[in-house]
Amino acid sequence: MSPTDRPPLRPPLLLLLAVGVALLVLSVLVTVTIGPADLSVAEVARSVAGHLGLPVADVARLHDAIVWDLRLPRVLTAAAVGAGLAVAGAVMQSLTRNPLADPYLLGLSSGASLGAVAVLVLGVAVLLPVAAFAGALAALVATLALARTSGTLTPARAVLAGLAVSQLAAAGTSFVIFWTATGDSYREILSWLMGSLAGATWTSVAISGLALLLVGTVLVAAATRLDAFAFGDTSAAALGIDVDRTRWSLMTLVALLTGAMVAVSGAIGFVGLVLPHAVSVVTGPAHRRLLPVAAVTGAVFLVWADTLARTVFDPRELPVGIVTALIGVPVFAVLLRRGRGTAWS
């Protein structure tokens, strides 16, 4: 019997979520005590408790800043971004019925990069997240407009249009970099292109958390509709789904979510590509189970990946995209082996 002959073992959703959330809370608590600066667990706890208004002894000013202004916002942003990317990736894979789809498929990361690079290099007086988000949205609008010129929005058209827009935005980015080849602003751009949570502040937490909460909730609510796409567009339509409108609105929502995530962290790879596959091994592909569990798993994953990024080569900072790729590629390879002869054949 091949592995797929076995009746799939699908643990209850509530159990999975309970374990996942517990792991996430634990991960946040643990990783916030880990860092290049040598702070005791008690200090960290006192700093957090102090900010939460609990009556505790004061923490040294700079230590407090390290915990409350550097580590905690960074860990929480990592959690929100990881959750958002995993959900966005899962939804994009279903919408395009392409297991290799990721949240950046519609030219979003390239568009965001162009926006960000314009700010970093040209010194445009706009906040970087705002510019990146605007770039991502512009790319999305361009992609959908291009896909729309030829009629209905099929996955193939969306993907091809996304590719064209990506190329254009990448060329634009290269041009901006070429044209303003001064000093070492490149280092910043490079780190941004590879994805980094190093600049996370409470504003990043707010942006990514809010986007996750708002868009993520809607996407989970749309899970049933996503299931309907399992056997294709006609089948979905026969199940009462407005295929075109659903695809448009869900792609736009994914783009908004991704845009917000890219804006705070750059384009972190592999989370949105690999995690949905890994999670669906346990949850099965039903989106009502898959999406929430993918969100929690993505959060835990990125929290730890970023902790590695900021501590392994202390005092040097590693772009977190390198860590996610280093972990993601082997996982992907295992899933590929496992998936032989089924969904990915």
């Binding site: 392409n98 290799l100 789809a101 990721d102 950046y104 498929l105 990361s109 390239s110 990069s113 993907v159 091809l160 996304g162 590719l163 990506s166 190329q167 990448a170 980015t173 290269s174 970099i177 070429f178 080849a181 000093g183 070492d184 490149y186 280092r187 751009i189 490079l190 292109l193 590509l273």
Partner: peptide, 23 residues
């Protein structure tokens, strides 16, 4: 499509990498 996107990124990186080396 995803591979193509990867190509876009790799096509872009040398410019940046070169520049980064330079600096």
């Amino acid at each position: 499509p995803s591979r193509a996107r990867a190509l876009v990124v790799t096509a872009l990186l040398p410019v940046v990498a070169l520049a980064a080396c330079a600096s």
